[in-house]
């Protein structure tokens, strides 16, 4: 069993099987593109982001986290008509940050996961806002209540998503 040591505490590192690594992000992107057609209220959720956070905190490897985030983000970009890289950059940052933080703090309990998801949702939105407005020139609107509300909604869903990911993750 591979163990990472931080501040004297033992933190377990997990991995995911290859089918899970490929199919779970694809399923998240597919559901993100399909469910809101039938239930428009679900547009506030960002399932690929939850998967990125879930993978990153379980693997606790910053490099794996940033690459997973980058790839999932680029795939998400590919379905939009915007330039490819907006979600790629945002999710790269989130993947790196989540896995780095996963080393430092315990992210196994639902409370920590809840707060972590709100934090990274807001970080994701800030990075996206800066890139979209500054580099691509999109008109963007920022509303703290909306972002916090969406963050909370995503965090609630995130607890369920992470619980599902816990079932498929494997100890290294």
């Amino acid at each position: 069993m591979a163990i990472t040591y931080t501040s004297g505490e033992q933190v377990e590192v997990y991995r995911f099987s290859l089918p899970a690594t490929i199919l779970i992000p694809l399923a998240a992107i597919f559901l993100q593109a399909w469910l809101p057609l039938r239930f428009p209220i679900l547009k506030i959720f960002d399932l690929p982001l939850l998967v990125v956070i879930g993978f990153a905190t379980a693997r606790r490897n910053p490099l794996a986290g940033l690459f997973t985030g980058g790839l999932i983000g680029i795939l998400q970009d590919a379905l939009t008509h915007q330039p490819i890289g907006l979600y790629g950059i945002s999710k790269t940052v989130v993947g790196f940050g989540a896995s780095s933080l996963g080393i430092k703090v315990d992210v196994e309990n639902p409370g920590a996961r809840f707060l972590l998801t709100i934090l990274f949702y807001v970080v994701h939105e800030i990075v996206f806002f800066i890139i979209a407005r500054g580099l691509v020139g999109l008109r963007m609107e920022w509303s703290w209540p909306h972002e916090i509300g969406s963050g909370v909604a995503n965090a609630v869903l995130g607890i369920a998503v992470y619980a599902l990911l816990d079932r498929v993750k494997q100890r290294t």
Binding site: A33, W34, P36, K43, L79, T80, H81, L138
Partner: peptide, 15 residues
């Protein structure tokens, strides 16, 4: 038939 959405609120497009 509409089969999908872009998956992003910043890109309002359908498939």
């Amino acid at each position: 038939q509409v089969i999908g959405w872009s998956g992003s609120e910043q890109s309002r497009s359908i498939y």
